[in-house]
Write a protein that binds this DNA or RNA. Structure first.
Lengths: 140, 140
DNA sequence: CTAAGTGCAAAATGTTTGCATACTT
DNA sequence: AAGTATGCAAACATTTTGCACTTAG
């Protein structure tokens, strides 16, 4: 499938710049739209969805399904994911909604184990652990 | 929060019976609705969503967000989840869409590790590993 | 009798699409 | 010029809600 080339449009640049300033932050399409509108940088929502999808395909953004029937989140990862083998897992707190980034060698063992023993090749970029974060657990 | 009691309605019994016959199988609300309609057991969709949510709260069903902007899946777990400490993780193949159940002691170590080292208490029932399954990986 | 559940149709979300127009290469 | 991208509005799919009515306890 010869993917077809990508044009360098104004809208794409705006979106890219927006995400580049927030590496690792999780943002919904709706939030992007709202931000753009609030700044006069009005980009149609269709464009936002289409570009976001494109950026995900290109590997510049990751996309997460946080809640069923809720909006998806996008996160800028740039080339970082490609460079370092440093896999990054994510934890989503079911209580406060916070998203935590976990960078840990031992966790990479998980991938290996599951691949070897269960034949399943994990995509850490799309995998999210749900649970309760430290803060919420403490105050409980 | 005094939860309020749960009435034993005809619709609830039908739903429960339906799920009990399919432990571990993942079913969307839409599929339940379709099934019910096709059998004359017509239950309003609002009721299905409301009961499903209730059953999730009670711990009889688990709910998974499989895809962003796609339907959520429900799985009957009955009391099994409460009895055995046997935690069950799930893997979702990004290619064929298949959902694999993983039952593995070693994996339980993950929970422990993340809890101790990262202070995050995983909810294995809601956590899904995304990636590529064995079959899809082979034929690639 | 009262609390809880039901069904319908309408709204609310979040995302995708058709199509004519405009921009990139 | 050819291939992409944009914007709008309409279409979609899934889930939620308001309200009058029914049923379980």
């Amino acid at each position: 499938m010869p993917a077809g080339s990508t044009y360098r449009t104004k809208q794409r640049e705006i979106l890219l710049k927006f995400f580049e300033k927030k590496p690792g932050v999780h943002i919904t399409a709706g939030e992007v739209l709202e931000y753009m509108n609030s700044r006069g940088e009005s980009i149609g929502q269709a464009t936002i969805y289409r570009q976001l999808e494109k950026l995900v395909d290109e590997g510049l953004l990751n996309k997460y399904a946080m809640t069923p029937a809720g909006p998806a989140c996008f996160e800028y990862v740039g080339m970082s994911a490609h460079k370092s083998g440093g896999t990054c897992f994510h934890c989503k707190c079911e209580k406060c909604g916070r998203l935590i980034h976990m960078h840990c060698d031992e966790l990479e063992g998980i991938s290996t184990h599951i691949l070897n023993e269960h034949g399943f090749k994990i995509n850490p970029l799309r995998t999210v652990f749900y649970g309760i974060c430290e803060d919420c657990n403490d105050e409980k």
